[in-house]
């Protein structure tokens, strides 16, 4: 639990002024997720990343590993700045488009869901590092949403936005849930407004009961299409390094020790076998290339 000091001394306040003048561009970061109804990340971290109970969390860990759930409070984009819909593609809303969190995007009808009813619902956000000056937006899926299909922005209906919030470790709000039946998903966006462009994203599965409008849980979840990486066809280089002499350096090429390339008018010799990548241009990675 954090205790926020009520007042700074005059001297400190002056220093604070100069501090704030500099820091807003730094990647300051808060942490948090929805704890009620719990987000997918929160559910799986509570079950335990190393030995989850539910089939959905097991599948999420199998798909993307455990680290995402140790870091359950960081499903965030440091640079969001309100550009959520530009930065996060359809099908990846729950992971914020981040590969680390791709397990959260699994389109399954068996994510543990909180039972809810239409009308007022008290919700809770658990912030391990709460930051003042934040906006919290809440959405719910439209009637007829199918949880076995990738979640798209157009599936969401706005419920409520709370602006200029100063969250505490646990912050409660009351939102008004519309009429739904069966499974639905509550999506939240925590956008910091002052001092950072960082935003956090959560997907909380809920169940209104009745089951109409949504398919019953499918015992054999429809594969895991959303996890399929945006695999680059170019990313299947041959593993057998060829020591081809000369030639211009190119990414996604296997180079053996001793291979020579030209880049930017200079010649380089490979000193450690590797498959080249964008960002690993010879002058930038002296560990891999020696200039001749």
């Amino acid at each position: 639990m954090y205790v926020r000091p009520k007042a700074a001394t005059g001297a400190a306040a002056l220093m604070l002024g100069s501090l704030l003048a500099v820091l807003p561009s730094s990647p300051a970061q808060a942490h948090g997720s929805m704890s009620n109804p719990p987000s997918r990340a929160y559910v799986c971290k509570t079950e335990g990343p190393d030995s989850p109970d539910s089939a959905a969390c097991k599948a999420a860990v199998a798909a993307g590993g455990t680290q995402a759930f140790y870091d359950w409070h960081e499903v965030s984009l440091l640079n969001a700045g309100g550009r959520h819909r530009q930065l996060i593609p359809d099908g990846k809303l729950c992971s914020a488009g981040r590969d680390k969190y791709r397990g959260l995007d699994l389109a399954r009808a068996d994510w543990p869901a909180t039972r809810v009813s239409p009308g007022p619902l008290t919700i809770t956000y658990h912030a391990t590092a709460p930051h003042a000056n934040s906006n919290f937006e809440f959405y719910i899926t439209k009637p007829g949403w199918n949880p076995t299909q990738p979640l798209r922005w157009s599936d969401l209906e706005h419920i409520k936005t709370f602006t200029n919030q100063n969250p505490t470790t646990y912050t409660n709000w009351t939102i008004n849930l519309p009429q739904r039946s069966g499974r639905a998903l509550i999506y939240s966006i925590w956008q910091r407004v002052v001092g950072s462009e960082e935003a956090f994203y959560t997907c909380s599965d809920v169940d209104f009961g009745g089951g109409g409008g949504t398919p019953s849980p499918d015992p054999t979840p429809t594969a895991t299409p959303t996890v399929t990486p945006t695999a680059t066809p170019t990313a299947t280089p041959t593993v057998t390094p060829t020591s081809q002499p000369g030639g211009t350096w190119a990414p996604n090429t296997a180079y053996a020790v001793g291979a020579r390339v030209t880049y930017g008018g200079a010649t380089y010799q490979c000193r450690q076998a590797h498959t080249s990548l964008p960002g690993w241009e010879p002058p930038n990675v002296p560990a891999l290339w020696q200039r001749l």
């Binding site: 590969d99 945006t230 990313a235 996604n252 964008p278 960002g279």
Partner: peptide
């Protein structure tokens, strides 16, 4: 910029 590019490329390859 190079770190962003190289890490993204590594992730793509590792996913594959």
């Amino acid at each position: 910029g190079r770190i962003e590019a190289s890490r993204r490329a590594q992730i793509e390859r590792m996913l594959a």
